[in-house]
Design a protein around this nucleic acid. Structure first.
Length: 739
DNA sequence: CTAGGGTTAG
């Protein structure tokens, strides 16, 4: 039964549940009773209990009318409590039709609408005949629960009782069939009847629209004798749901031409369409329309939709201004603005707003955390991520939200704690495809190719069908471990055994693998064979391979392609200059440098962050802005001294193009990752793991230095660079110098 | 006491 012990109110005395007498006092007298007036204004379950005890005290609970009103409030008010309603309901030996209807209605509104059908059956078994009000409620439940079989049986009851000529029952039937995808049956009910009002038309239209049959919907729409605002809204929403935003917005224009006043629903749908299609001009127009027709700020739903629209269109300033102007924000306001910042890669702002939310009286929900966890993952803020994990365990215990678990796996992997990611994954049952994918990709970026492959085998054995994303993870695992043969095998298996056509990312992994193995001819052949044009990432990985293998001429050729494809990307120039530097061709280094300067481009400065005691510290290359700068640079000197004593010779071949020769060595020792590591060494306990996140790839010199540092200071150093993770421990790195 | 349309995440 629905009643759980915890939901039973303790203060209900036996007398409160006494059977009501057969005859009530006159209704007029009851309707104006103070307790029942209070009930209509009640806004919480606590208030309800007070009113209930008042009703008991005044003896009013002995009237069926008062009981009905109490049940109605508990079952249907958003501030109600369905279990409480059921408790009252079960105390009545012979409920009347109204009370049965109310209980059925309550379940139709609940998260478990199919239970309404159970009560409908009980009602029949008790010998109570349903009336014209019963069917809209129970049919709505069948629509919500997808219960077509039950709906058909109830349809038979409608016919038997002669209620098909009731407009409400009729529309409910159409809607039940339409929502359950039984469009032929919906059509049959519609065609057989004499009802040709906008309401029945719209019920049918929505059915067609939700299955993507917009042409059929359109034909029906044109036949409506008098189209009302809901009919228009249904068409606009239908097009929007099929991603046919232009047509949706055309219908909106048309509607205004026909002088049909849009309402709040119209504006919400139109704003959503603007948001998804990036139509910020129309969005602006809607904004002013809303300002003219509503007291802005009085309608939170519209303001939230506006914030979402501006966020998705990239105008975060306007979005933020609207957000700041809200007096009473709800959880959606937050979610929308946080999502906006995350969407625009403003992760720090997203987290700042999340912290603001935690300090407010708005509780985060699962959607909030789904917006915040990727921000944690991008920034590598493990402590906040752990906090959110604990928050989820505490507050979402009973909620099986597999996407939250997948986000946790992804967050832990990207924050460098692959063991924690595995723990979440192992505890997950059932495991969704997305969670397998997240785990495989996570292992891949940590260089654990064997584990990733084992997982892939397990997943196939478990009967799951891998998708294109699975193979991106699997192939990148091969790439990060330099497993060329295995990569080839899986690439071929993906195509032939799993019928997945390779996408740009899959080719990218293969070309990267081949390039690093020095197999440039085969890489080129694969590139020529692709169904699509190679992107900057592919040319970039090839350029990286040219640097590793000292292929100057090929590098020049590849770089030209990259310059053409991504003229604003300074990375290609830097790589080419490094190739020249590796070959000792300093004149060419200077030439590339000049070309870069002439274009007004600057190398993206290296930036490394480290989280200590939940505070994120950021270091720029050569930076001196940190409050502990003096101590950090003293530590750097110490590190360099110890490195030298250990026989470390700085490798200056990957020269910074804008430094003069004598500065090279000094500049290398001030690379941002080294600053962060020095800070980590002085600000954490001896032996503690140091985790850092860098925005660019680690340079060869820092890589060698960090290996030694891990040995000299006996520290595990986990570094995330632009490409993957490096676990430095006892003088060596998990990437086995292959990256 | 009743029927048809809508926002946030993925």
């Amino acid at each position: 039964m629905l009643l759980s012990p915890s939901s039973v109110p303790v203060h209900i005395s036996a007398s409160a549940l006494h059977v009501a007498p057969a005859s009530d006092p006159p209704y007029k007298l009851l309707e104006s009773h103070p307790s029942l007036l209070l009930l209509s204004k009640c806004k919480s379950i606590h208030g309800l209990r007070q009113i209930h005890s008042h009703i008991v005290k005044t003896g009013l609970h002995n009237t069926l009318f008062a009981l009905s009103k109490l049940i109605e409030f508990c079952a249907t008010s958003p501030f109600g409590d369905l279990p409480y309603a059921l408790l009252l309901f079960e105390s009545i030996p012979e409920p009347n039709v109204f009370i049965w209807n109310t209980i059925i209605r309550g379940h139709s509104l609940s998260s478990d609408p199919i239970l309404a059908v159970d009560f409908y059956v009980r009602m029949l078994l008790c010998g109570t005949q349903p009336n014209s009000y019963t069917f809209p409620f129970v049919l709505k439940s069948c629509a919500k629960a997808g219960a077509t079989r039950e709906g058909k049986q109830i349809h038979a009851h409608v016919l038997k009782l002669g209620l098909w000529c009731d407009a409400f029952v009729h529309t409910s039937l159409i809607n039940m069939y339409a929502q359950n995808g039984e469009l032929d049956d919906a059509r049959l009910v519609f065609d057989k009847s004499a009802f040709r009002d906008a309401v029945s038309f719209t019920a049918l239209i929505t059915g067609y629209a939700s299955r993507g049959y917009m042409d059929a919907a359109r034909l029906l729409f044109d036949k409506i004798p008098v189209r009302d605002v809901v009919s228009w809204n249904a068409m606009i929403a239908g097009y929007a749901q099929c991603f046919r935003f232009e047509e949706a917005l055309t219908f909106f224009e048309e509607m205004r031409k026909m002088n049909v006043q849009p309402n709040e629903s119209t504006m919400l749908t139109v704003l959503s369409a603007c948001a998804q299609s990036g139509s910020v001009e129309l969005g602006n127009w809607v904004h002013s329309w809303i300002e003219d027709h509503y007291e802005l700020g009085s309608n939170l739903r519209l303001v939230n939709a506006l914030i979402d629209m501006y966020s998705k269109c990239g105008d975060l300033e306007t979005a933020r201004r609207l957000f700041d102007g809200i007096h009473q924000r709800d959880v959606i306001s937050w979610n929308v603005i946080i999502g906006g910042y995350t969407h625009m890669s403003c992760y720090k702002e997203a987290l700042a707003l999340f912290r603001l939310m935690l300090g407010s009286d708005t509780e985060p929900n699962d959607v909030t955390l789904l917006g915040v966890l990727p921000a944690c993952a991008h920034l590598g803020v493990l402590d906040l991520g752990k906090w959110i994990h604990a928050y989820i365990d505490k507050n979402f215990e009973n909620m099986t939200n597999s996407s939250l678990s997948t986000s946790l796996i992804d967050m832990y992997a990207k924050c460098g704690n692959i063991e924690a990611a595995e723990q979440v994954f192992d505890g997950l049952n059932p495991k969704s495809l997305a969670s397998w994918n997240a785990m495989i990709s996570g292992l891949a970026m940590h260089g654990h190719a064997d584990k990733a492959i084992r997982l892939f085998t397990q997943m196939v054995d478990a009967g799951l069908k891998p998708d294109d994303i699975t193979f991106v993870g699997l192939l990148s695992a091969c790439t990060h471990a330099g497993r060329l043969e295995l990569g080839r095998q899986y690439f071929s298996s993906m195509i032939h055994d799993f019928n997945i056509s390779p996408k740009l990312e899959h080719y990218g992994c293969m070309i990267d693998l081949l390039g690093r193995a020095g197999m440039f001819d085969e890489a080129e052949a694969l590139m020529k064979n692709m169904e699509m044009e190679p992107d900057g990432a592919i040319w970039g990985s090839l350029l990286g391979a040219c640097r590793v293998h000292g292929r100057v001429e090929l590098g020049e050729y590849v770089a030209e392609h990259l310059f053409e494809l991504e003229p604003e990307n300074p990375g290609a120039y830097v790589l080419l200059s490094n190739i020249y530097a590796g070959a000792g061709r300093w004149d060419d280094v200077a030439r590339v440098r000049t070309r870069l300067k002439d274009k007004g481009m600057k190398k993206v400065p290296g930036c490394t962050s480290i989280e200590v005691d939940s505070v994120v510290h950021e270091f720029l290359v050569g930076g001196k802005l940190h409050p502990l700068s003096k101590d950090i640079y003293e530590m750097l000197e110490e590190i360099d001294k110890l490195l030298e004593m250990a026989g470390f010779v700085p490798d200056t071949s990957e020269v910074l193009y804008d430094m003069d020769e004598e500065w090279k060595e000094g500049a290398l020792s001030h690379h941002s990752e080294k600053l962060a590591i020095a800070f980590g060494l002085i600000s954490t306990k001896p032996g503690a793991t140091i985790r850092i996140v860098k925005n660019l790839r680690v340079c060869g010199n820092c890589h060698s230095a960090t290996k030694l540092i891990s040995k000299i200071f006996n520290r595990e150093i986990i570094a995330r660079d632009r490409n993957r993770f490096h676990h430095f421990k006892n003088g060596s790195c998990s990437c086995k110098d292959y990256w």
